[in-house]
Structure formats: C-alpha cells, structure tokens
Amino acid sequence: MGKATRESYGMALVELGKEKENVVVLDADLSKSTKTADFKKEFSDRFFNAGIAEQNLMGMAAGFANVGFVPFASTFAVFATGRAFEIIRNSICYPNVNVKIAATHAGITVGEDGGSHQSIEDIALMNSLPNMTVIVPADHREAMQATKAAAEMYGPVYLRFGRCNTEDIFDDNYKFEIGKGVELKSGNDITVIATGMMVAKALEAARQLEAESISVRVINMSTIKPIDREIIVKAAKETKAIITAEEHSIIGGLGAMVSSVVCDECPTRVRMIGVKDVFGQSGTPDELMEKYNLTAEAIVNEVKGSLM
C-alpha cells in the first residue's frame, strides 16, 4: 500500500519550496492534517495560517497571486469548496488569478467524521466554474507530479486529495500531464474510466474479468476539467460501452463530464459508479466503500450488465 495523496501533496510542497521562491502556502488551521506542516517547518516565512476562516483563506490567496506569488490554499474539501465557494468564484476564477486550491479529506473515505465532512459534491462545484482546472490524482507519484504541474501552469487549479492510503499504480517512469487521460490497460469489450481511489478498483475488476475472457480497457482520468475528449471518443468508438467510477456523487462529476463528451461526439451507453445522490454517513472507509458500491465487485457487475 502506498501513501495517502495528502501526504504526497505535503512532500511535493517542500520540493516546490526549494525550487521556487515565489511559492507560498496558506492553511485554515489544519496544517497537520493537510500535511502543509511539512512546508511550514522548512519555510516558516512563506507559510500563513488563516485560521478557521476559509473565505479569508481564499481571499488572501487571491491577494498573493495578484502580486506575483504562487499560493497553495489548503483545507478540507468540504470547507474549501462549500464555505468558500463565493470567494473562489468572484476573487479567483472570475478574474482568473493564479491560485492553487489543494483540498484534502475529500470523498466518503474521510470515514468516521460522517456525512457533514464527506465532500462528495466538490468536483461538481469546481467543474461549474469557468477558468478552473480540476485534478484528482490516483496515487502517490501522480499526486506529487500533479502538485508540481499545477505550480507550473497559470490559472486556478483545484487539486483533490484523500485521507487514506492509496495503492501504487505508477512507477518512476510515469509522466503526468494536465488534461490527458492515460490508458492503463487495453481492452476491446468495455471501457472503465476511473479517477482517484477508484482507479485501483478498476484495475482489480479488469483483472478479475480477464479470467472470464472479458476484455476491459481501463483509463485513468486524473484531470476532470479540461477532460481528455480524444481518449473518451476513441473508447466510445472501439468498445461496447463506458463505465465511469468515482468517489463522488454521480451528479456533476466524472460521469457527467464523460457523458457530455459522448453525447456530443459519439453516442454510446454510459453507466456511472459513484454516490447515488445521497449524503455519506459515519463508518470506516472500507465499510463506506462497500455500502456505496464503490468496489471492484461493483465494477465487475456493471461490466457484465453492460454486455447483456
């Protein structure tokens, strides 16, 4: 088992701090949990605690961006996108300033904190904003590279990180690129397009189905916006159906973005695995993934259903 992507984010910030003197980090009094404490330890003069005041956090980040810094604003996903949405809209995206919003503890795998803290609508909220780039890394290496890529590009970026450890998917040869999906496994029967923690589940499901002579193509879609239209259309043309898998509501997230591309360019059947328009509840991450059918078994069943 690899690292949690929030830990990868903290590690990447330290490396960025050494490489770029204009990188600053802001946090909402959660630096131990978001792992920005690592940056604070190394670069205390470039770390700013806004306190439990997420709207101020985003406004401060916009201010830093406007005078030439590259600010990373960090807090839990439910607070970053919910409590601070209007500031993100009007002070960051509307003027298109160079702020990176790094939200940790996203999805239902926050676990025992319960539905009030499980952000399952954050991707949808960020997708709705013009000028926003939305990235959901699948593992440690991709999270490291995505953080650095966000620092290199100009404009608002939403980086979604998790609380739990992820399985290692990529090796040291992997090269992350914003806006590009990656085919992890070839297949001609069904395509599974997954993001975040569900990528490992998709690969596991594909391995199980291979034993039953069902050929599944697996695509890691780490950039939700702008989405890789080319790889989606290719899959729609070459396989019988597409299944999307995300640790997020099926409303407004990966499934919705893929469906929009397919409807526009190459109509085919799309089935969505995700949270079905309900709130989360308290439980261990594994219990919640089972309850909301965010499992390899759920993907296997959807694949088989799509072939009937």
Results as ranks from 00 to 15, higher is better:
G2L: 08
A12V: 10
L13C: 10
E19H: 08
E19D: 11
E19V: 00
V25K: 02
D27I: 05
D27V: 08
D27S: 09
A28R: 09
A28Y: 04
A28I: 03
D29H: 08
L30S: 00
T34R: 03
K35R: 14
K35W: 02
T36R: 03
A37C: 05
F43D: 12
D45G: 08
A53C: 11
M60W: 03
M60I: 02
A61L: 03
A61T: 00
F64I: 09
A65I: 06
V67K: 09
F69N: 04
A73D: 05
S74V: 01
T75L: 06
F79P: 04
F79S: 09
G82F: 13
E86H: 07
I88C: 10
N90T: 15
C93R: 07
Y94N: 14
P95W: 00
V99S: 11
K100V: 03
A103V: 10
T104V: 15
A106W: 08
A106H: 11
T109G: 11
V110C: 13
G114T: 10
S119W: 10
I120N: 13
I123Q: 05
L125S: 05
L125T: 05
N127L: 04
D139V: 03
A143W: 01
E152R: 14
M153F: 00
P156N: 11
V157P: 00
V157C: 11
Y158C: 00
G162V: 05
E167V: 04
I169K: 00
N173H: 10
N173S: 15
Y174S: 04
E183Q: 10
K185I: 13
K185G: 12
G187T: 02
D189S: 14
T195Q: 09
M197V: 14
M198A: 05
A200C: 09
L203Q: 03
E204H: 04
R207Y: 14
Q208W: 00
L209Q: 03
S213N: 15
V218C: 06
M221H: 01
I227W: 07
I231C: 02
V233C: 05
K234E: 12
K237H: 04
K240D: 08
I250P: 08
L254T: 00
L254E: 08
S260D: 14
D264I: 08
D264E: 15
M272Q: 12
V278Q: 12
P285K: 06
N293C: 02
V300W: 01
G305C: 13
M308P: 00
M308N: 13
